[in-house]
Amino acid sequence: MSRPVRVSPQELRQTLIEAIVEVAPDVDPTTIDPCEDLAEQLALDSVDMLATLVSVNERTGIEIPERDYPKLATLDDAVAYLVHAAVRQVDAAARQEEDSSI
C-alpha cells in the first residue's frame, strides 16, 4: 500500500476537487457548496462517485472501504474523513516501521 503523501486539509480538499473535475469537467469548483450532498448538487451518479473516490485513492494512497462511502457525501465531510484516514495510515505505517526496527 502506498503511503499517503498529502495530509493537510487544504491539500486533501484540493485533491478531492481535482478528482471531481476530472470526472465532471464542467463543474466549477467555486460553486460547490461544501455542506451539501456532492452527488445531488453536481448530479453525479454512482459511477461518477466511485470514479471520484478511486481517483482520490490513486492520488493520495488513502484506502476508503465501501462501507465508509456515505461518510464522504459532502465536500466538508469527505475532507474530514480523508484527513482522519490519512493520519491513521501514517500512524499505522510508523508503528510498522517501529515494530520492524525492534
Binding site: 459511477v47 466511485l50 476508503i64
Partner: peptide, 17 residues
C-alpha cells in the same frame, strides 16, 4: 456484492448497476 468488494482494491469494486 458487499463481500466481493471487501477484498477488492478500490478501482476494481463493483456497483449494483
Amino acid at each position: 456484492l458487499g463481500k466481493a468488494n471487501e477484498t477488492r482494491p478500490m478501482s476494481e469494486r463493483l456497483l449494483p448497476a
